[in-house]
Design a protein around this nucleic acid. Sequence first.
DNA 1: CGCGTTTGACCGGCGC
DNA 2: GCGCCGGTCAAACGCG
Length: 841
Amino acid sequence: MALKASGAYRHCTPCVAQSQFRNQGESDADSDLFRWSYRRTGSSSSGTQRMWGKEMEARLKGISSSSGEATNPVNQVNTVNETGGISSFHEGPNNRKSKGGRVGKEVKERCVFRTRSAIDHLEDGYKWWKYGQKAVLNSRFPRSYYRCSQSGCPARKRVERDGEDPLYVITTYQGVHHHNFSECLMLFPQETTKEVVQATMDSPSADYNQQPEGLIQFEQDGDGKGETKNVKAGGMAEFFQQSNQSGHKSVRTPIEGSRANRGGQPVRGKTEEPGMPADTETKDKLPFSVERYTNMSSRQGGEVLTEIPEGDEWIAPNICATVCKPVLPESPSCPFLVALSLEGSKALMAIPSSFFEHMSVLTRLNLSHTSIRSLPVSLFKLFSLKELSLRHCKLFMELSPQVGQLYNLVLLDLDETQIVELPKEIGKLSNLEILRLSLDGYVNCGKQLQQNLLIHPGTIKRLSQLIELKIDVNPENEDWNAVEEVVVEEICSLERLQHLVLYLPNVQILGKRTTGSTSLSYYPLRRFKYTIGQHRQHIISRVPEKVEARFQEWDKCLKFVKGNDISSEMKRVVGYTKAFYLERHATARSLCDFGIKNMKNLKFCLLAECNEIQTIIDEGKSYEEEEEIDTVEGEVIDCESGVEAYSAQEPVVLNLQYLHIYYLKNLASIWRSPTYDKQCLSGLKVLELHVCPKLSVIFSPALLTNLGKLEVLVVEDCPELTSVVSPTSNSSFEFSLDCFLPSLKMMLLLFLPKLESISSDFHIAPKLEKMGFYDCPELKSLSKREMSSENLKVIKGEREWWEALEWEESEWKMSGLGPNRKPRNWMQNHDIGAVGCSDLR
DNA sequence: CGCGTTTGACCGGCGC
DNA sequence: GCGCCGGTCAAACGCG
């Protein structure tokens, strides 16, 4: 429903706004966004009159005075009724201009927008500096003045809230940016950033978010008096979220918010975890912020998303729309359009061939998650284009060689597309800094193509400015084997490359190098994610997605899937990896099989379905016989401490903070050492054990003393587990007065049918805040020494189990817990088994 | 400390 | 010529 302003005004285009803050149920009338554009056409023969901004204002003033009211001129002109009409505001040619003293002074073109928004300063793709704010006569709201942050740029804008309808913001643009558009582009916040935060806040065990009915929650106040509550729906999730903050609190969002956001959006925190992605160190040293290019549709709160304007003339500098119709206009005139996002427009199957004909300043184009199959020819004339995203266009199968004409491209995202071959013309994109590529189309093509080169030799080498490269390949694509080696060799020649995401079916390729060049396993990178072996997307994993996502957050990730052996190349890469994910390895018996000295840099470790693993850290094995990994003279392996030679006295696995274990069917112990290594696992903060059927105890007393930093312990589905801490005959530990696990804040014990005791009467967890139990029928009493914490605030478990607990009256006397504190009004037991089990799993 | 906002002073056009 | 008003300047402020 295009609204044509009659008479003197055109370009009043209502758009279906999709404010992030708006409820879906709101009417279209409420959500209309109206725009005005006032432009002088000179001797327009069309009969449509357009006005200069100043002229318009002069006229407005005239109206105000003639009507006897002193009103805010901008507010006056923008009076709009909810059905989309403009109030009567028509005048003949303005005669003030000839009278006024401004004749002859340069009058700049103005463009006025009126937008329904909760936020005054809407993002428009440019970065602005506020240089003034003034109260406006007869307006309740002040007017803010902004200028383009690019020095010398004459573009300005002013922003004020509509005095008549405070739901709307009036933005008036004046002057034209006279510089390269992307030089002052705002850094759009990355959507994944939010996800990082979310993931961080979630339960360490992602599957426990649901609160099964029938569980009780015991909360203890600061004064030690306990109270049980019926848990509301979602209460468990809240519990675990809170709990997890202690365990993962240092894992914060990596990207700092723009200072300009202050006041509008909460400013994001800095990374406290040096190994987390895009940490400040990484960011500062990059020539630009990688995140800038990652999601152009993601906006700050209050930004209005629009439907594609109807009509043939689009005046907005920034359009972000999800189109519901399969057709776009043939050739809209978009003289100011800098950024266009049609992300998620599933209905969009094709783009008219001349669609981009009149978008000469378009810099950023996001067509991701659409159903297009190819790009129209007019796109290849967009010489200003710097960013093009076709991510997740599942029907996009062929990239035209004409892409080579887009020589200003900085970002090309072809991840999750179906293309089968990268045209060699890509090599002409000498400014390309980010290339994400998914050569996954082979299988879905359904036919064997002729010998396909996937990536032509010499193509990658020419992209000398590449900073980030992702190449994802269908593992069943045998053509990849033919070029893999060449591609890897070319990657190693990219001097600026800092971030590499690569799938390699063969381990050997890591170490391959031709004379004089570097092999990938030596190649120093600030960030990498290698998936080696069976492709992650083609295997059904038992590891929850959220845990895998947490693994992916690290800046140096190595995932090794379905391996049969452990090569020296693999060991070397493990040596400078921070996050290691070993899945379905056929022969590994211990993490230390990857080189005990290579454990020093590991901070996150995820082990899943490795049937031969019997112990995680095995210092008992003789590693002196380990083959010495050859090092290349003069090469620096990029890691903080370097990989140093291991000596028996040196502590190992010092820095590991997160250890997640899933389905290790032969796991019998966490740590085995002939001597007592005081620092092994001393950095561990989070330990999760899921489905380890042979595990009977988790910690030996010796290991217990090392875990001074452990904050979160989750044990689930270990049918043989009798105690978390093994009983000992060692007199030095027996009757120890020491208190172990001093930092433990959360402990979850779930589905442990043989669990009889938590700590075997060791004094543990003085700072414990939260405990959760489920299906531990043999745990019939809790001793004071394993529940010694003064900070215990929440206990969750089955009501019947809790009520049946045997309490040693004398031990618990005067305590906030125990039989005396059992409230009577516990929630009635519901069908815990049915609901609870499925939810917990 | 840097960067962006705030805020009072100032300037110039315009109208009376 | 004076005062109002919109617009701009720049020092102070303040947040991270």
